[in-house]
Simulated assay, not measured.
Amino acid sequence: MDKKYQVFISSTYEDLKEERDQAIKAVLEMGHIPVGMEMFSAADEEQWQLIARQIEATDYYVIIVGHRYGSETPEGISYTEKEYDYAKSCGVPSLGFVIDEKASWPVDRVDKDSKKKKKLDGLKNKIKSKPVHFWSGKEDLHGKISISLIKAMNGNPRTGWTRTDESLDASITKELSRLSAENSKLRDENNKLLNKQLEAVDEIRDVVNILNENSRTLQIRSEASFDTATEHTRTLLQLFLAVAPNLILENTNEGIASNVSYSIVGTKYHNFWPFGKTPTEHLMADFAALDLVEPSKKKHPVSDKSSYWSLTRIGKQVQKRSRRIQLEEGITTSEDRLDDEDT
């Protein structure tokens, strides 16, 4: 009797949606049963146990790798790599498909984080330790998966599933196709929040690094005249962290100038525009350009001509996450640098 084989398809999700669809299509066109993580959620151990049971019951395992390592488990390994390792430990024949490094690829679907890149290279090398197939596009991938599965099924036949009759087979295939599309849509919706969180983390890390890589020199006066003003150089990160606490609600430009001056010279600053109105406006323009601050939405009397600012969503996240990012990136903290950067 004809057999139907279960084929587990593993990959990162958001960046390889179309490629996964082609893999599922290839398996369905061959009359077999595709299974993949879009039918589940690997967000906790209970769901991982469900995925593990599916891998154990799988006849062939297909892993597709692009330029992203993917979401990681608490142990620091991606769910894709965890699935691959488990399939190998179960003795499931594994077929690896790694993207050709010369193939054109959207830059927004490439890992920028150096740690993730290193882990991705390790996964690719692990897959390349066995015969592997290189692909350059979704159409190319479709054909290579079909050919590779045919060779694997002929050369290494597995237990598979036996069907009762053609009409049942057709209805099962149709239902599987419908369920696959439905589960893919649900998976997409369920992962949007997680992906937004992951993207936000990367976005905040980028902003922190930009702030740290740019400096400003301010002339802070301790009396009415600027003749005796002293120069002080600080990174935009130091300056932002100095003013952020008082921007959670709102603050004026002059208040911001005072906050910056206090963080540098303590109370030894002139209480009226300690480093000037124009430099303060330029500083706030820098923060606004990075979407860290925005004009306050609170209402004020018409007679009040001051400019009021508040933190944006990104600004609040930078203030909240900056300390951890500084430690992870090896960025010297403002407390460490305030004493040795005066010029």
Rank of each mutant, 00 (worst) to 15 (best):
D15V: 02
E18S: 10
D21M: 11
A26Q: 02
A26W: 04
V27P: 03
E29S: 06
M37I: 12
E38H: 14
M39R: 13
R53W: 03
E72L: 13
T73C: 06
T80V: 02
G91H: 04
A103C: 08
V107M: 06
R109T: 05
K115L: 10
K116G: 00
K117H: 07
K118N: 10
K128V: 04
P131L: 15
P131G: 02
F134L: 15
G137N: 15
D140L: 06
L141M: 08
I145Y: 09
I147F: 09
S148T: 05
T162P: 00
I172G: 08
D188V: 00
A200G: 11
I210A: 06
S222F: 08
F226M: 10
T228F: 13
A229Q: 03
E231A: 15
E231C: 11
T235I: 06
L237Q: 02
L247R: 07
L249I: 03
T252Y: 11
P274K: 11
T278A: 09
E281V: 10
D286Y: 12
A288V: 02
D291P: 00
K297S: 07
P301M: 08
Y308R: 14
I314H: 08
Q317M: 08
V318Y: 07
I325Q: 03
Q326F: 02
G330E: 07
T333S: 11
L338D: 08
D342W: 05
